[in-house]
Design a protein around this nucleic acid. Structure first.
Lengths: 250, 250
DNA sequence: TATTAATGTATCAAATTGATACAATAAGTA
DNA sequence: TACTTATTGTATCAATTTGATACATTAATA
């Protein structure tokens, strides 16, 4: 059998399954932040050979909470579990689901039907998550996804749909949450030095902090526990190593 | 013709229209705050004779933005236009759409079909808005809505679905936005005195502020313009009257 | 004209923040 | 071993902000 025909049949079947099991008009997208080599990165998936990238995402089953759907999709795409997820934005523009790059690409490949399916009106509920890059194993056996990329948030490639806007909203939410919630938690490997923590803050806020004042502020918050010293074999005082204190059960 | 049969046909027609024109699985709800007689209130609609209330809401047309849908529904239900609306929460629990009170009520009245329709899985995108109670003309020609109520947020009646949770989330968002965005704007009639403004803040934050410090804080923000004095015919110094300064076009 | 009650503003101490200085120390170098 | 270097931990000081309180102003009334 013609493999392409076979493929279209598979699509037809999955489309039927979609109708049965998934909520129509809705999807979730997750902005996965990581911190690696002093850069704040975002996980992106490359769409075919278009040169365009997109955020990981997926659909919502009829019997699961929207939050659960976000967690499940995250697990399916990256093998991550027990991750802090925060719902920060709804992408609800009527025109957002049609991207000429996607339509063009699919038509060129003969996927007229899939094209119209993927271009259906769709509202996306957007989450952000914070992860250690090394613990993420992106799943690439997904149609049209050719590779993945941890992209520096200050230097994003071209993105499909309104995903650039979504990432901007995610970053500003991350900034306003950074001080309150214990977000650094997921982004830094313990133990870490005060300097490590400061560099993370600087990557997130995209500005410099005064060292001594940053240290004072962090120590005063009573969230760090000193667990030793780090001897780097370099000619200076060894910095303390820290872990985050366990959050009190309240 | 039997009026109830006739009614069911109307429902059938509107259900068909629903399928054609509206996004399935999705709705919007709006928490409409007002400030009246030193109380922070929320607009609620009474569901039949059940003793239960609900938030105003509606559906999203296939060709309109989610934000537009929220504005349109608000206009249809209250005749309000050009209102500050903020998306603050997504109610996405799988079980949220089924409320035994609603099911019971509709069955009792013989509306089996409508009951199952209204109980379909539904994700609600929630907005908050701030309005002058006197400018709101709630529309009561809506099926099952018997009356409306401006309910004190500190003393809510029983609510259907997860609407109590939604209002709690709305209040905490209102509190965190109060200082940044010029929200008082929509809640106070201009001109107002400093004491009026303070009472509004006290209703929103549900706590008292020290008068002199509140005044200092507000004056320093450079958002108020003095426009005269208020002679109340009472034995004390006349307070200044204020308006909000026009926001600079930036 | 004195009294009263609410208002506008000043004041003072405490807490917070930004900038800078300085002491401590791990390793390299003479 | 003593001195140097680089980085870290902490102290200090002024400027700013915040909470509490005091006091002066003033519109109506007795």
């Amino acid at each position: 059998m013609d493999p392409e025909k076979n493929h279209e049949i598979n699509i037809k079947q999955s489309e039927d399954r979609f109708r049965e099991n998934l909520l129509p008009s809705l999807s979730v997208n997750t902005v996965l932040f990581s911190y690696h080599q002093e850069r704040l990165n975002v996980l992106l998936l490359k769409f075919g050979d278009t040169g365009y990238f997109m955020l990981p995402g997926g659909f919502i089953r009829r019997d699961e909470d929207v939050d659960e759907a976000a967690l499940r999709n995250l697990k399916e795409l990256t093998a991550l579990e027990n991750i802090y997820l925060e719902q920060f934005y709804v992408a609800g523009n009527a025109e957002r689901s049609t991207d000429p790059v996607v339509v063009e690409f699919l038509k060129k490949q003969g996927y007229e039907k899939i094209s119209s399916w993927l271009s259906q009106r769709n509202v996306s509920i957007c989450y952000l998550a914070l992860v250690n890059e090394k613990k993420v194993k992106p799943e690439l056996n997904v149609q049209f996804i050719s590779r993945y990329l941890w992209a520096d948030v200050t230097n994003l490639p071209p993105l499909l749909f309104d995903h650039t806007t979504i990432i901007e909203k995610a970053l500003s939410r991350l900034q306003s949450d950074m001080d309150q919630k214990l977000l650094s938690n997921n982004l830094l490997n313990e133990p870490f030095t005060m300097s490590d923590l400061q560099k993370l803050y600087e990557a997130v806020f995209q500005k410099k902090f005064t060292r001594s004042n940053f240290q004072r502020k962090m120590l005063k918050r009573d969230i760090l526990a000193r667990v030793g010293k780090k001897y780097e074999g370099r000619a200076h005082k060894a910095p303390y190593l820290y872990r985050f204190k366990k959050v009190k059960a309240s």
